[in-house]
Design a protein around this nucleic acid. Structure first.
Lengths: 202, 202
DNA sequence: CTAATTAAATACCGATTGGTACAATAATGA
DNA sequence: TCATTATTGTACCAATCGGTATTTAATTAG
């Protein structure tokens, strides 16, 4: 609002690169065990002192919440967009499956979804992160449900189940696939499993 | 071999109750986060001193391996027995689903499968426990595969897929259900998801 | 009774954790 | 120039971790 154009700041100029820290932390939480990655380790890897990190994110909970919000913006929102395309249910479903079982663009190996990983390690999250994850879950289920409802209206969804349950079912299968990928299973097999699990929907 | 009938023991009599410690540890690992449950905590809860626990199990890895072996004997083996019944594929599958989604006999709430939980927290396991888990996984996949093969021979398995893949698929769905239960989801919904996921098999 | 043997628990070890007190540093405004 | 303001990093805190050295207690063999 006031500090963007020039530099009306007063004290010692800030050198801490918030985005860099978030990049490092996101990749770390994504690829490794969330409950086993310490703040100290994040500091080491991002080259930031511990008090610096605490000044920026308050505490571990604050850092993780910032990470999951960043993940939402960078990864989850584009997926949600997919659900609003004009394609048929089957086409969209195939896109979803392909996205879920392929390595994401900028990372070498497939490793599942950070959001789903956090949901699975709920006990390691702080309060703020946990409620953010809950919010995302609600959002995802709603998006799936509306997608199914629209597909039903178009006559493209033939399975005899409520849109609510269909959303739960799709979410469960995608989550399972994410876990398998994170565990190191062959993406082709994971994709095949998803195909079979979704074979009766359209 | 030699110490069973009477007491040919020499030194101070042992008071440590191995079975009690294993009961406490199994329930704890089962219900709570594996990577967050310390040896100290197991000692506290079982009323055993730390050196006592180390004398009995060598180290944390030894304790966890003893726990998973106990779990295999008490829980997993009976399930494997189910796969060798004379019932039809559908009947056996229903039994499997019911077992997987119901609370186990002696515990209040459903909480999934300890073996699957350990498989998911692979990074927290020691070497011995990890290889025991690997062995159990191999055993489970083989059992599923042979079950499918026998069912195919009886003409009760109609889906067009290899027995190998069918085993993988069944394992993935059961694992997913276990995770959902452990996360606290409604067993009825989890069961419904399994039913849908298995609807095309028989 | 004594020596040998075995298991018991207290009290410690170094490492690591999440989190902070504090003094040094670098900028601005007067 | 000099106080004010804001950010820095070192060096620390208590708690906990997995694991162990050591002493004491309880038993049997001779």
């Amino acid at each position: 609002m006031s500090s963007n154009p020039t530099k009306p700041s007063r004290g010692r100029p800030k050198t801490l690169d918030r985005d860099h820290v978030l990049d490092v932390a996101m990749e770390a939480y994504w690829k490794e065990d969330i409950g086993n990655l310490s703040l100290n380790e994040v500091c080491r890897r991002s080259g930031v002192s511990k008090p610096g990190l605490y000044r920026e994110f308050s505490n571990e909970d604050g850092l993780m919440k910032a990470v999951i919000i960043r993940y939402q913006e960078q990864i989850l929102n584009p997926v949600q967009q997919m659900l609003h395309s004009e394609n048929s249910f089957r086409e969209t479903l195939d896109s979803l499956v392909s996205f879920a079982t392929s390595a994401s663009c900028h990372h070498e190996s497939p490793m599942g979804c950070l959001f789903i990983k956090m949901r699975e390690s709920r006990s390691h999250l702080g309060e703020a992160t946990r409620s953010q994850v809950d919010f995302l879950e609600e959002q995802a289920l709603t998006a799936f449900k509306k997608w199914v409802e629209r597909s039903k209206a178009k006559g493209e969804f033939s399975a005899d189940m409520s849109s609510e349950f269909a959303a739960t079912y799709i979410d469960a299968q995608i989550s399972s696939a994410s876990s398998q990928l994170a565990r190191g299973e062959d993406p082709k097999i994971v994709k095949k499993i998803l195909s079979v699990a979704f074979s009766m929907l359209g």
